[in-house]
Design a protein around this nucleic acid. Structure first.
Length: 427
RNA sequence: GGAGAUGUAGCGAAGCUGGCCGUAACGCGCCGCACUCGAAAUGCGGUUGUCCAGAAAUGGGCACGUGGGUUCGAAUCCCACCGUCUCCGCCA
């Protein structure tokens, strides 16, 4: 949600900023409607004030035995005008809100306009592994070593699911343990949220109403509407933890992390090169989240990027960090860094973490505020989130980057303590 | 799933035979001041959010879980929904 005052006062600025995201908008109708709406509010509220005054007079006149009939007649008249005014205002509010809800966040000053093609690699860690043999695809390696059972996954959940087995399941759990341990060390509070969330949660996060079709919805008995859905990321839960609250400034920043599977429809997005666990309907992820004062956002984003990077780096994987152009940031976000790990079989880098600053966009939607110590007035907090990390790309990266000529796979040092001390995945 | 209770400020709680009740009794907490060498105790004062108009001072509207209804007038009466609690049933 953008600040309506900003649109009123600098519509051309907002239009130009949104254009950087590839979002074309014309505010002329909106502004006209806004002026009309405020005029109606002004007129209707004046009548309401008269109504309140008159209403207070009636019992007094009655007490002194005077005739209240003329006042009652006037009240009837006022009430009709108020009712009609309120109806018009309510309609305009609905229209205006729908318009505002659809507007994406403005990009930060330092974010380049345009789409993917303008993403910038800002950091590269490690080197692409060079193999003295023909490297195998993670699907083949995982099946040979019995780590992942794709056939059973399809039997159980349909296309786009898999089953972790034996050392595969243990490796997955080791990754999660490793991430959790690191976040606890850094003082983040661990959260295990519900996986089913209410519609309002999706709204606050900025996913609804526009992207409601991307999630698995739980239909009501009428088969039409839905009021709950299965979360596509723990961010959706964490951003709602303090919805409708006024936090005290000295509580901030609040730092959380949550583990949940992420459930996504991914309708129509299958591509041949994404076979394996690159893009499934369910994957495990640990999500970091911060609520901060507006002035703390830059530092917080840097912290999240650094934390996510360190996790990948300490696994020994080759990866890069990209700063996304405005159009590649998701709707709610003003600035995003992606951490992308090298997947040899794809000859490409795939996102394992997306670290984003939402500014006050989500806080406005969720009415999440803090009390400013100086002015004592409430203001909107800023929210930031970053994966830390999603396993479904890290897992294949480990399998592929650390494969040996003899088919064995080296287990990263940091994971070994959760793998019973073994150093190799082998048949 | 069945029965009952309940939802009022940061917390507890009164009001619920409709107008004198919404900044909202009373208590706790918090802030300021006084007393004090300092503190405790005590005393006095303050302490919701949002929207509209206005340069501002200020004036006004709205909000008693949410949404409707009755009424000149609703925290109060009626209806629906949501949350919480207790008991019963079922169940990992």
């Amino acid at each position: 949600m953008l600040d309506i005052t900003l649109i009123r006062e600098q519509p051309d600025f907002v239009r130009d900023e949104l254009a950087k995201k590839g979002y074309a908008v014309d505010f002329s109708v909106f502004l006209e409607r806004d002026a009309k709406r405020r005029q109606l509010i002004y007129e209707t509220e004046r009548l309401k004030a008269e109504k309140n005054q008159t209403s207070a007079q009636i019992p007094q006149l009655k007490k002194s035995g005077q005739d209240v009939a003329p006042l009652l007649a006037r009240m009837k008249e006022i009430n009709e005008t108020i009712k009609s005014g309120d109806e018009q205002i309510s309609h305009l509010n609905t229209v205006q809100k729908a318009f505002l809800d659809a507007l994406p966040n403005l990009p930060a000053d330092d974010v380049l306009p345009g789409g993917k093609e303008n993403n910038q690699v800002v950091r590269s860690v490690g080197k692409r592994p060079e193999f003295s043999f023909q490297p195998q695809h993670h699907v083949d390696l995982c099946e040979r070593l019995g780590l992942i059972d794709y056939k059973s996954g399809a039997r159980l959940g349909g296309s786009g699911f898999w089953v972790y087995r034996k050392l595969g399941a243990q490796l997955e759990w080791a990754l999660l343990n490793y991430f959790i341990e690191e976040h606890l060390k850094d003082g983040y509070e661990m959260i295990l949220p519900p996986h089913i969330l209410t519609w309002q949660c999706g709204y606050t996060a900025g996913q609804f109403p526009k992207f409601a079709d991307d999630v698995f919805q739980l239909r009501q008995d009428d088969g039409e509407s839905f009021s709950q859905f299965i979360l596509p990321t723990a961010e959706t839960a964490l951003v709602n933890l303090h919805r409708d609250e006024i936090l005290s400034a000295d509580q901030l920043p609040l730092k959380y992390f949550a583990f949940t599977p992420c459930y996504r429809k991914e309708a129509g997005s299958y591509r041949a090169e994404e076979r394996g666990m690159i893009r499934g309907h369910q994957f495990n992820k640990i999500e970091m989240f911060q609520y901060v004062l507006p002035g703390q956002a830059d530092q917080a984003l840097q912290e999240l990027v650094d934390k996510a990077s360190r996790l990948v780096e300490n696994l020994g994987l080759h990866f890069q960090v990209s700063k996304l152009a405005a159009g590649d940031c998701s709707a709610s976000m003003r600035r995003t860094y992606d951490i992308e790990v090298w997947i040899p079989s794809m000859n490409d880098y795939k996102e394992v973490s997306s670290a984003s600053d939402a500014g006050d966009y989500q806080a406005r939607r969720g009415n999440i505020r803090y009390r400013d110590p100086a002015s004592q007035k409430p203001g909107f907090v800023h929210t930031l989130n970053a994966s830390g990390l999603a396993t479904s790309r890290i897992f294949p990266a480990i399998i592929e980057q650390f494969q040996m000529a003899d088919g064995r796979i080296a287990i990263p040092d940091v994971l070994q303590k959760w793998m019973g001390g073994i150093k190799w995945l082998e048949a």
